[in-house]
Design a binder for these strands. Structure first.
Ligand code: SF4
Ligand code: SF4
Lengths: 137, 137
DNA sequence: GTATAAAAGACAAAAACGGTCCTGAAGGTA
DNA sequence: TACCTTCAGGACCGTTTTTGTCTTTTATAC
């Protein structure tokens, strides 16, 4: 239960490589993929998600590649994970507007527990920036 | 990410029905399935897992069925979830004896974050018993 | 115009999910 | 003993998700 997918793991490795590079340096996806030991085409998809979420900037053509869109101290691990895996939802009754199928959409007593779990995970992941991680090596 | 499967959701509903019954009362799987609104054959598998984990007792033959193996105040939500979904493992480097494939099995800096996530989730789920949940309705 | 590099989308194998079904074993009961 | 009840265990199966690959298109630099 609660397992990060490969995509999530690769996403972190990739963004961490970017964070370890000099600020503003443009990196090729091929370069990132090699350093992060991730299949290149797969990582390309991941970085597309990053770009859409405004975590990285992408540049096409000669001299193109990716840079961080913000200072690494302003990018949290939660953002990185959620960019590729979607929001952190321990149970479907926490989905925005979703609700529960039982009892006429009234949440049951367990609902609150899942909210606690969600809040706990979010707090941990929001408390870590990729700058912190990159510095620790 | 981190989503409980149907199996986990059904497991909780099923055990909560047992906890709502008079202590020691033997309940049929058909009865539990109907009350919990869960496919019966699927719930049967779930209760097999419970029995193996020592959460419930099962009795065969006429008059058989299931009872809680312990007082509901001694059964935590974590046990119930882990019985059917396996241990709470946010990332594969937390698997016992598993380790990471990179850097010669040395855990990286993100490893500690996943340990924090795991500890947080476990703390929440271990802090709730099915007795508490059943009482709140 | 041409080379470069990301964007976008189609495709696909493999695994996980969400069950169903059948046979068998254990335990009552007449 | 024969029969009925109830759970145990395993085979099976369709759908969805994961984990990618490949091809085509678009944007950019030179
Ligand atoms: S039964 Fe309770 S925990 Fe389960 S989905 Fe509904 S509100 Fe959430
Ligand atoms: S790279 Fe780090 S976080 Fe990822 S599996 Fe290895 S030790 Fe864990």
């Amino acid at each position: 239960m609660m397992e990060l997918t490969r995509k999530g793991e690769y996403a972190i490795r990739g963004i961490l490589y970017l964070a370890s590079q000099p600020l503003g340096k443009v990196s090729l996806i091929s370069e990132i993929a090699e350093a992060a030991e991730v299949p290149q085409t797969f990582l390309a998809k991941i970085f597309q998600s990053f770009a859409k979420m405004g975590i990285v900037n992408s540049y096409r053509g000669t001299g193109g590649g990716f840079t961080l869109a913000r200072h690494p101290g302003k990018i949290t691990l939660r953002e990185v994970v959620e960019a590729v895996e979607g929001p952190i939802i321990p149970n479907r009754c926490l989905i925005e507007g979703g609700g529960c199928d039982r009892r006429g959409n009234l949440p049951c007593c367990v609902h609150e527990v899942w909210k606690d779990v969600q809040a706990g995970v979010v707090r941990v992941l929001d408390g870590v920036t990729i700058e912190q991680l990159a510095q620790k090596g």
